[in-house]
Amino acid sequence: MTIRQWTMLIWGLLGLGVFVCLIVATLSKGRLSTLGTLVSRITATRLGQGLLMLAWMWLGWHAFAR
């Protein structure tokens, strides 16, 4: 395997890890923090909400415009 393929494989494993965490947290019925819980904690303050919005804006601009 080339280095590129290894790098892609690790990205895939990380993505799979996030997906598994999402499923496990959802199925735990509140025992584990879901991503939504974490987002709620962050957006509980205007500062946190503003920072997440900025991250969203940057992501969109970076991915679709520039």
Binding site: L14, G17, C21, L32, S33, L35, L38, R41, A44, T45
Partner: peptide, 28 residues
Amino acid sequence: VMHPNCDSQRVPRSNRWSLMWVTMAIVI
């Protein structure tokens, strides 16, 4: 909602398993 450390149900309390997400973010 203004105070993240309150016991209100509007802001779910995080637990030690929040570390799972923080760890994932750090690894990525």
